[in-house]
């Protein structure tokens, strides 16, 4: 199970631009490295990161092996209405992890 860390405000005023920070523990194995036995380590990449809030995708990222291990993203969204912000990561095999953060908008 991948460890996920989200940093986001719990409350905001409507219209505020809020900072969201999301990290997931993942090797982002490039497929170019060799292990101690000299064998190539298989590529293992999270290829997609999506953030949904107030019934819309507000941030999407297509990722390649050039993203460092344990990918972290800091980005912004405008607070609109109270509700969950859903963060979802999907790897090359279709496996996905998600986490939600409840935002209260006054």
């Amino acid at each position: 199970m991948a460890t996920i860390r989200i940093a986001a405000p719990d409350t905001a005023s409507a219209g505020d631009v809020i900072e969201l920070k999301a990290l997931i523990q993942h090797p982002m194995e490039t497929g170019y490295r060799s292990g101690p036995d000299g064998k190539r380590i298989e590529r293992d990449i999270i290829e997609r990161f999506e953030v949904t809030y107030d019934s819309e995708t507000v941030f999407e990222a297509d990722l390649h092996p050039g993203i460092a291990a344990n990918p972290i993203f800091t980005f912004y969204t405008r607070a609109t209405t109270s509700g969950p912000i859903e963060f979802k990561w999907t790897d090359q095999n279709g496996q996905s992890w998600s986490e939600t953060h409840e935002l209260m908008v006054e």
Binding site: T30, Y53, T74
Partner: peptide, 12 residues
């Protein structure tokens, strides 16, 4: 809806 076009991450 992003409000601000700024993204930070870590790359190889």
């Amino acid at each position: 809806r992003a409000g601000k076009a700024e993204i930070s991450t870590r790359i190889r």
